[in-house]
Design a protein around this nucleic acid. Structure first.
Lengths: 334, 334
DNA sequence: CTGAAAGCGCTAACAA
DNA sequence: TTGTTAGCGCTTTCAG
């Protein structure tokens, strides 16, 4: 069996209270006894049980991370930063991949509550907002990432999606494109990017055509089929704004398959600035999200909540940045 | 405060033992009481604490996943499959991103022990083998993924790396390449791929030149610098076998920067068949690992260990598959 | 400076 | 069928 605090106490000839104190550095302990105890712990290869200490009211040192799809490079990057920062702060993270599936979301929420996690980070793409309320009701600190929920007073770290959308559109329009399509996601952030899309078009006096607007879930294959749809229109767009790099990669692939040259015949802008945007050819013009800062700040925000100290809740909006690469150019004959 | 089993018992006018029984479906409970209890649980929005039940000797329902870099698409994919399967089986997974850092490895091992996880999956890239022994000593079930450790009698799911390396080399050589370089990783699986590299060359009577062999860590930028190194040789290789897609992507980028045409002037083979291999242009010839099956089987294997039933430990070697795409061709003048 | 003892929320005999 | 009770391993007063 795994050694317990009793074993250590016996080995060191002290009481369990004493052992507990040296483990936690609480109370005053004589240098000799401390050594004795430390030694006994080494000897027995003792690892204090977090389960037991959690039961006595201490924190579990665990946070939950709800993320829609870890195989999307953007989320993978975010997860990595979150994990990094959490680890620095001595927290471990339970990865909850929801696959945009409400049932999984629900199961995970319940699980996290039962696990007594210290807090949870909800990342973009969360469908069932009412579930978040469930967790808030349990007095479990929550932080929102890359997703703002207007009606919930929760600490949030996000980027300005409207601005990001506007930057992408502005770039495309200033290159001279008139027929610009958009592939948006079925999540809130895409609503804002879509608003920017519409506003940007109106601003330069271009009508918004519904046939140029499509919504889907993030994946390369969906990007391909949406592109295919656009290419089949009687007046195909000369530029496509894909609301994430995965979709953009799909568009680029389909363009390749149809023999459509990028950027000569078709300009493409992605969103997220993932690893995909530099590994494609041509490289992808995209909107960068500061994943590292987002990850750090959301963890820090959550930890502050957990420790109950400090700053009142806030919504932090970081600014996206347009990264111009090889997939965008002026339309032919411009 | 969060409701406890006592609150539920009081609300339902029964004892806590009864409540416990209906929660776990153990013992025999009258239909009426069961309903009463269930109702009380709903009313109070009660979630049984896993922490408490874990302390009484039950499983924690948690496994640890040690992975070197979740932002590497191959690992992200693997993590996703593992998470999927675990979730199906009612397990949650603590993500431990080690960054190939021995200190992090060590901290995580200790953490997982303290957390009383039911088992842990060590994925390729684990440096400090002795640490694995630590966890085995604690009687915590372990499964190895994509990484075989010859001296440890542990359940393992991996691919046949030698075969994978051989397939890649065989493809390159049969295209007529004579000067083939390799970029290997600093992990065990690359040893095997490197062996295959050497054997394949010898088989066709080509000398193995050390200048064509480089080892590094997986990243695009390392791929670029290794490629740069090769391009500067007096006799640059006409083909490069990169031991993973990240490195291959780097090679492709550097080739682009130097104006070297792929595949006309340089053939590239990757390894892993990640999302990168289809999003690049040209698309990348690579060796596919069956991530889904690997993920499923390693989880199943671990669970069997945990449940103590069944099959003796085994090493499962799945077979890799060569995927020929656009980045390889016969060398010029062949 | 050190130890005894009362819980934390739940499970699992054992009684009733 | 239901309840009583003794722990699980640890923290934390409160005494000594």
């Amino acid at each position: 069996m795994k050694p317990t605090i009793y074993d250590v106490a016996k080995e060191a000839n002290v009481s369990i209270a004493t052992v507990s104190k040296v483990i936690n550095g609480t109370g005053r302990i004589g240098e000799k006894t401390r050594r004795k105890v430390l030694l006994a712990m080494k000897e027995l290869n003792y690892h204090p049980s977090l389960v037991a200490s959690a039961l006595t009211g201490k924190k579990t040192g665990t946070i939950g991370l709800l993320i829609p799809d870890i195989s999307n490079p953007f989320y993978a990057e975010l997860a990595k930063k979150i994990e990094d920062r959490s680890h620095e702060l001595g927290l471990s993270v339970v990865m909850c991949n929801t696959d945009y599936d409400e049932e999984k979301e629900e199961k995970y929420i319940s699980l996290l509550i039962r696990k007594n996690v210290d807090g949870v980070i909800f990342s973009s793409g969360f469908k069932t907002v009412s579930l978040i309320q469930d967790i808030v009701d349990q007095n479990i600190p929550v932080a929102l990432l890359a997703q703002e929920i207007p009606r919930l007073a929760l600490g949030t770290v996000a980027i300005d999606d409207y601005l990001g959308g506007y930057e992408a559109m502005n770039h495309l329009l200033s290159l001279g494109h008139k027929n610009v399509a958009i592939i948006a996601e079925n999540v809130h952030s895409s609503d804002l990017r879509l608003n920017a899309y519409r506003d940007a078009l109106k601003e330069v006096g271009i009508d918004v055509h519904d046939q140029y607007i499509v919504r889907t879930n993030a994946s390369i294959s969906n990007g391909k089929s949406c592109a295919d749809h656009f290419f089949n229109l009687s007046v195909p767009p000369t530029a496509i704004f894909a609301c994430n790099d995965l979709l953009a990669a799909g568009v680029m692939q389909m363009a390749g398959e149809r023999g459509i040259k990028v950027p000569e015949e078709l300009s493409i802008s992605g969103f997220d600035n993932t690893i995909l945007s530099t590994s494609s050819a041509p490289t992808l013009t995209t909107i960068a999200q500061p994943t590292e800062e987002m990850g750090n700040r959301v963890v820090d925000m959550l930890v502050e909540e957990i420790q109950g100290k400090g700053a009142s809740k806030q919504r932090i909006k970081l600014l996206p940045e347009l990264i111009i690469r090889g997939s965008t150019a002026s339309p032919k004959g411009n």
